[in-house]
């Protein structure tokens, strides 16, 4: 199988981006009215839908802190070959477990004892960096649900191919067996929340990947923060709009 050129002589990637450029990010929050929090996130062609329910009553076991449950699944139409959407195959379980652990530390669980928060992630279209998209979508859904969190978690991937480190991998770049890192950081402190490295890398390359992924995360943060801000301000303006209408009654 002939290897496609991942980076052209001009320095452009398969989708025309420069190595240190993330894809176009579109996020919509509050799209599912019945869920406490929801977010539809598009990172290029990767589309992820995250819904959050909670905090709500936890019927079994008593706990002094909130419990978080997470389920991750990929739709059967998400990738080019149709496959049965499985929720309990190892990959999905590991993703869900990783995301759950990430958010267990971000949410202020002692503020909602004896309650649970359920996270549901559905990948609608997979074009690389699904893990990052999932984490970002869940963050925004949490904000939409009004669940108190320490910080925003932002995530981005980075890879090393043809002697270049690139940011925000798409599917074509992910299926190569080169070193790839998915990194999630706390936006304001820039400390690492979660990291996953696929394929071996020397120490130097690894350091490079972390630095580049961090930069990508911060770019992602800008987009996400402004989306949250815009949505929230719209809501507030709407609510206050006729709030004092006839309140003298």
């Amino acid at each position: 199988m002939p290897r496609e050129e991942l980076i052209s002589p001009d320095g452009l990637r398969t989708d025309g981006r420069r190595p240190l450029e993330i894809r176009k990010v579109t996020c919509r929050m509050g799209i599912l009215p019945r869920a406490d929090g929801s977010c539809h996130l598009e990172m290029g062609n990767t589309i992820v839908l995250a819904t959050v329910y909670g905090p709500r009553e936890l019927s079994s076991r008593q706990s002094s802190c909130g419990i978080i449950r997470c389920e991750y699944s990929m739709a059967s139409f998400a990738s080019t070959d149709r496959r049965r959407g499985k929720r309990s195959d190892r990959n999905s379980v590991e993703m869900a477990s990783s995301i759950k652990k990430t958010f267990e530390n971000v949410l202020l669980t002692d503020l909602f004892p004896k309650s649970r928060v359920d996270i549901f992630i559905q990948v609608l279209q997979a074009d690389g960096s699904e893990r990052s998209a999932a984490i970002n979508a869940v963050t925004i859904a949490m904000v939409n649900a009004g669940i108190p969190m320490k910080d925003l978690i932002v995530s981005c991937s980075a890879g090393y191919m043809e002697n270049t480190t690139v940011m925000d991998l798409n599917h074509v770049e992910m299926i190569t067996r080169g070193p790839q890192l998915t990194l999630a950081i706390y936006a304001s402190t820039e400390r690492m929340a979660t990291a996953h490295l696929e394929s071996k890398a020397s120490f130097e390359i690894f350091e490079n990947l972390i630095a580049i992924a961090k930069k990508g995360c911060l770019q992602m943060f800008d987009v996400m923060h402004s989306s949250i801000e815009r949505y929230s301000l719209n809501l507030i303006a709407s609510r206050d709009h006729i709030a004092t209408f006839g309140s003298r009654a």
Binding site: H225, E229, N234, S238, H241
Partner: peptide, 24 residues
């Protein structure tokens, strides 16, 4: 797109936007 977003309602007041905070 939820209904109110379609409308892209009123422009948020500048005062309010300066007091807006997100987690973190």
């Amino acid at each position: 797109v939820s209904p109110f977003e379609q409308e892209a309602v009123v422009t948020p007041s500048i005062v309010k936007s300066s007091q807006f905070v997100a987690p973190g």
